[in-house]
Amino acid sequence: MTSLTVDAVPRAPRLTGRRFGIGLSGLAVLLLGMDAAGKLFAPAMMIANSPPLGIVADTSFYQLLGGVLAICTAFYAWPRTSPLGAILLTGYLGGAVFAHLRVGSPLFGFTLFGVYLGVLVWAGLYLRDARVRALLGA
């Protein structure tokens, strides 16, 4: 009688983690896309509802920020360029964290929100992209 070892049983593909990663990435794209769209199409409303960050309250500046964010988010959403998009979004979100730190915004509400989004971006990418997992040795 032959006994089966754990190594002899083929593993099922880990689709659950990949699907969860796609869901996290989709949520990040949705949130960042809404922010970019708001800055592009309704900059006056974004200026009025933003905390005072010491940034020039100019609609063209907010539209420029929205364009940069839209491009970074598009790179992240496209599977082939998603690692580049994650790196670009990390830089963009780091600037947002700095801006909030500079003016003394509440830490857990406004200031760290960019960090929360960055973790969401990278967690989604890690779970859905085998290249990123291989790069990190997982």
Score class of each variant (00 low, 15 high):
103 V>E: 13
52 P>F: 15
1 M>D: 06
8 A>C: 01
94 G>Q: 10
49 N>P: 15
134 A>H: 01
44 A>T: 10
7 D>N: 01
58 D>V: 04
31 L>K: 15
119 V>N: 02
83 P>I: 03
95 G>Y: 08
131 R>D: 05
78 W>I: 06
81 T>I: 03
60 S>M: 14
42 A>T: 03
55 I>S: 10
7 D>K: 00
120 L>M: 02
129 D>F: 05
116 Y>E: 14
52 P>R: 12
26 G>E: 08
7 D>P: 01
138 A>Y: 00
119 V>W: 00
84 L>H: 05
43 P>F: 10
62 Y>I: 10
64 L>K: 04
39 K>Q: 13
37 A>H: 15
46 M>W: 11
135 L>R: 02
37 A>L: 13
14 R>A: 01
127 L>F: 00
51 P>I: 10
136 L>S: 00
110 F>I: 11
99 A>D: 08
121 V>F: 01
138 A>D: 02
35 D>R: 10
112 L>P: 05
56 V>N: 05
23 G>T: 06
105 S>C: 10
113 F>W: 02
25 S>Q: 13
96 A>I: 02
91 G>D: 10
13 P>E: 09
10 P>I: 03
94 G>C: 12
16 T>W: 15
32 L>K: 09
27 L>A: 14
86 A>T: 01
132 V>T: 00
121 V>L: 02
83 P>G: 04
21 G>M: 07
46 M>I: 06
75 F>W: 08
113 F>Q: 04
21 G>R: 06
51 P>D: 15
118 G>L: 00
133 R>C: 02
115 V>Q: 01
128 R>F: 02
138 A>S: 01
98 F>N: 13
138 A>W: 00
11 R>F: 14
68 V>N: 08
26 G>T: 09
54 G>F: 12
31 L>M: 13
112 L>Y: 00
30 L>H: 09
5 T>H: 06
54 G>R: 04
11 R>W: 15
13 P>V: 09
34 M>F: 07
18 R>E: 13
115 V>R: 00
124 G>L: 02
1 M>C: 02
49 N>W: 14
95 G>K: 13
48 A>E: 11
67 G>Q: 03
32 L>T: 08
120 L>A: 02
26 G>Y: 07
41 F>Y: 12
11 R>K: 08
102 R>H: 12
134 A>D: 05
12 A>D: 12
51 P>R: 08
98 F>P: 08
29 V>N: 04
41 F>T: 04
126 Y>N: 04
102 R>Y: 09
41 F>I: 02
89 L>H: 07
